[in-house]
């Protein structure tokens, strides 16, 4: 059986790069086809029929035609444009960050329906949530889980002994929390407060509605951000580019408010 020449899929546009005079290459996150790249012709011209239907961070229904190299988008209809996300600088920046995360961690053409749904849910949450940082941490933790990097948080990730209800450690290379004894032999382990451990455990095993009830002080929020950022950097062997922008935005808004 040969694959049909044209096919239809839902997609979230997570990246786009210019191609030639007026075209773009889009990176799509889809439920059944995983991540894939496709060409959107003429989208940089104002009269393009694809126009805003294939804008970044948009959930659309696409019709594609198989191409020799990349498939070509022939029709597009917006399902959700996430306008409340795009109208706010912090929100849209967080949306771009999770897009970069998904793009960095996934290979092309690997079906992952749950990852698609996680991304879609997260864009909805980012459009409304008061604590956007919490949404990001919850997403990071569950993205890592989908990819097989679920951090071990119940027992020590190295010796398996139960963790004391006190300050412990987190090791990116061991992929989880460490007890005091093991942390001494792991030079890059970082301290992990008891509150941070509790919150990570709760988020790991609860749905978003439950997870979002957590109220964090700025210190705890920043600790969790650092723990997960280091872990992600260790797994990708590089820092994500959009973290610098998130940091700058936050720093400038703190300066403006002080």
């Amino acid at each position: 059986m040969t694959a049909p020449r044209v096919y239809q899929t839902e997609a979230i546009i997570i990246k786009r790069t210019k191609l030639g005079e007026a075209d773009r290459i889009l990176t799509l996150c889809t439920p059944a086809l995983g991540k894939l790249k496709a060409v959107a012709k003429g989208t940089r011209r104002p009269q393009s029929k694809l126009g805003g239907h294939v804008e970044l961070l948009t959930h659309s229904l696409l019709m594609l035609a198989r191409g020799r190299n990349l498939d070509i988008i022939t029709q597009a209809q917006t399902i959700d444009d996430f306008l409340p996300l795009k109208d706010n600088l912090e929100r849209v920046s967080r949306g771009l960050y999770i897009s970069e995360l998904v793009d960095s961690f996934t290979a092309e053409r690997m079906e992952d329906r749950r990852l698609f749904n996680l991304l879609l849910d997260t864009l909805h949450q980012l459009s409304q949530a008061e604590d956007g940082e919490l949404v990001l941490r919850y997403f990071e933790l569950h993205l890592l889980e989908r990819l097989g990097y679920r951090p071990r948080l119940q027992q020590c990730a190295s010796c398996g002994s139960s963790l004391q209800p006190a300050a412990n450690y987190f090791s990116s290379s061991q992929g989880g929390a460490l007890c005091h004894d093991c942390a001494y032999q792991e030079p890059i382990a970082r301290p992990l407060s008891l509150n941070a451990l509790k919150v990570l455990r709760l988020w790991q095993d609860s749905d978003y509605a439950t997870a979002s009830r957590v109220r964090m002080k700025p210190e705890l929020s920043s600790e969790l951000e650092q723990v997960l950022r280091e872990y992600i950097k260790y797994l990708l062997e590089r820092q994500l580019k959009s973290t610098a922008w998130l940091d700058k935005l936050r720093q400038e808004s703190q300066q403006a408010n002080s």
Binding site: K49, E55, T78
Partner: peptide
Amino acid sequence: LPYGGDLEYADDVTLS
């Protein structure tokens, strides 16, 4: 809306 464009094909962001 872009001049020469068609309302039918306009996306919601452009229309709003």
